[in-house]
Design a protein around this nucleic acid. Structure first.
Lengths: 158, 158
DNA sequence: TCAGGACGATCAATATTGTTGACTATGAAG
DNA sequence: CTTCATAGTCAACAATATTGATCGTCCTGA
């Protein structure tokens, strides 16, 4: 125990374990909302891992390895998500003409439309959230979450 | 489209889809940290669903159905988590003496110790986070997340 | 009372997501 | 040209979640 911030007893700690819980519930709220929106507006909703992949794909991250790094999951897990998206006709895999090892993910026309609808869904959900908790809280939420979550947590490193 | 807050185009929405992403990454940071802590301090780390169940169990939610409601997953999914915890010697299932339908989850001695260690881990992780992003941001994060995430999202209901 | 329905728990089958380990093929470096 | 790192893949498995069906138990109204 290298820091002086650990609680002396479990009793003290008992009041402090709500963050993980609320983060998970907030994530579920947003993800469930997105799935409901997609179901209604596009007739198809993607499971969470595939939605997450879509988010980065729409940001231009188009190589499986880069995608895996951004998602913080293994290349294999990423590949399974991509394979599922491919099967649904949302993306295609194209070999890199310059580099024989690499491949690139490209959207189909259908996939691009789906991505656009998803973005609007997330926009709408954040607007709902803004109405629910207020502009200030939402802004604070964004600000607080805008950290480098790739930082080590001190238990792997010390 | 019953509200007037939807973006006119996907272009406008493109800037607004970062919340889900950062929520997921923050959740991963906390959960990965907890698993590393438990591995180091208790020699055993629980997968996420089981950790989540433990959180509510330590709050006194001890009936499978209530647990499922709190976790917002199916009773069956909850049962699988409980079965796994039981197999690991962390909990036991006791029939309710008054009500023949109900069962109650009780901790084993080992399970209680494990829960206490987990609480301290979460406490320590939140302290780390406080050092990283600052007390104010963490407080804002807590405040913003302290909402009723069971509220409908408007796409299931309208 | 007792028949019907609601409720709590469980079993079974399946989908999705994630892991580790092993493998292939390409590119880069000496 | 050998060696090694990189990018992607295949296979097996663990964990989590779903839907659908089943089985007792409790509750309630005719």
């Amino acid at each position: 125990m290298s820091q002086n911030t650990a609680p002396e007893t479990a009793q003290q700690a008992a009041q402090e374990h709500g963050l993980l819980r609320t983060l998970v519930h907030a994530t579920y709220w947003l993800d469930d909302g997105l799935q409901a929106y997609m179901k209604k507006r596009a007739g198809l909703s993607l499971p969470r891992a595939q939605s997450m992949a879509m988010i980065y794909l729409t940001e231009g991250i188009d190589r499986p390895s880069d995608l895996a790094a951004k998602l913080r999951v293994s290349k294999q897990a990423t590949q399974q998500a991509l394979k599922a998206l491919q099967k649904k006709g949302i993306i295609e895999m194209m070999p890199d003409p310059k580099n024989g090892r690499q491949k690139h993910v490209v959207f189909t026309e259908y996939g691009r439309n789906l991505g656009d609808i998803a973005k609007m869904g997330l926009f709408e959900l954040e607007a709902q959230l803004s109405r629910r908790i207020g502009v200030t809280k939402l802004k604070n939420l964004r600000t607080a979450l805008d950290a480098d979550w790739g930082e080590p947590n001190g238990f792997n490193a010390d």
